[in-house]
């Protein structure tokens, strides 16, 4: 697997990495259960090879593609990003991936494509959380981005972390990483990409629209109704200190993304 930087990248953080055990052992991936240790416990049952991604909607190059064919045309690189969960904890993770823009160019979206929607695998046989009668999520998990967000250089499609292939519990074999948005936007185990003219529905927004917006940009000034977003617990916490740090606007990526929202009321479009 080739890992090299095609061009100088400006979003790199120098902060200490979150240990591998936490990155791969403390996950929200409700397809495998709602406890944060469930994904690490159950995700090994997931078959990630063969894997294909279906591209549809407003684009020239639609169809179903084998993952290896899609990856043959992109250049992998390592990027260390902060990950800020909407639950007010955060990690620093060295991802391996490629800008989503490279994949989108392969699909050749047309001028009507204003949004890109994503869908996670739905395979209850291998995903116990999808069999649970206690979940209120309507599977499959769906997410989406505005086209300019998707084309931003920060927006990554990850296939690995810590220099190795993505563990299943982290969204193998291919997932989205949008570092200036809350973690739930970074959809895992993607099987479908759809270009549309209208804003796509997204899973958490459907569940609780007053708590989770479409944009979900990290914003210390807009609280979640049940907790403050002004600070975050950088993991790992130690026993007697939660290691709390102030949350930065756009998770510290203002330079790269603030222009995308310059005329928007972020209190309203949270």
């Amino acid at each position: 697997k080739q890992v090299s930087s095609a061009k100088p990248f400006t979003g790199e953080t120098k902060e200490a990495l979150t240990p591998y055990d936490n990155v791969t052992g403390y996950n929200n991936f409700y397809e495998f259960g709602t406890d944060k240790s469930d994904p690490a416990r159950y995700a090994h049952k997931l078959t990630t090879d063969p894997w294909s991604v279906t591209v549809s909607g407003e684009c020239e190059n639609s169809g179903t593609f084998a993952l290896e064919d899609l990856l043959a045309k992109v250049q992998l690189e390592e990027r260390v990003y902060r990950l800020r969960c909407v639950e007010a904890w955060s990690m620093v993770i060295p991802w391996i991936g490629f800008p989503l823009a490279q994949l989108i160019k392969q699909c050749q979206p047309n001028s009507r494509a204003k949004y890109v929607a994503f869908e996670t695998l739905q395979r209850p046989k291998e995903m116990p959380g999808q069999r649970s009668v206690f979940s209120t999520i309507d599977w499959p998990y769906i997410e989406g981005l505005r086209m300019d967000e998707a084309m931003n250089d920060l927006t990554l499609m990850a296939v690995g972390l810590y220099g190795e292939m993505l563990p299943n519990q982290n969204g193998a074999p291919i997932r989205l990483v949008v570092p200036w948005k809350y973690g739930f936007k970074s959809i895992k185990s993607i099987v479908r990409i759809h270009f549309s003219e209208t804003m796509p529905a997204t899973t958490w927004n459907l569940l609780a629209p007053n708590e989770y917006g479409f944009y979900a940009n990290v914003n210390p000034n807009v609280d979640h109704p049940r907790w403050s977003q002004a600070s975050e617990r950088r993991l790992p916490s130690s026993l007697f200190s939660p290691n709390r740090i102030p949350t930065q606007m756009f998770n510290g990526y203002q330079q790269q993304v603030a222009h995308l929202y310059k005329d928007m009321d972020l209190e309203r479009y949270y």
């Binding site: 240990p19 936490n22 052992g25 403390y26 944060k36 790992p236 916490s237 130690s238 026993l239």
Partner: peptide, 16 residues
Amino acid sequence: RIQHGEWNLLGPEPGR
């Protein structure tokens, strides 16, 4: 046990 080195025994958020 956490204080004696098993830092991840209760996960990355032991307080929580």
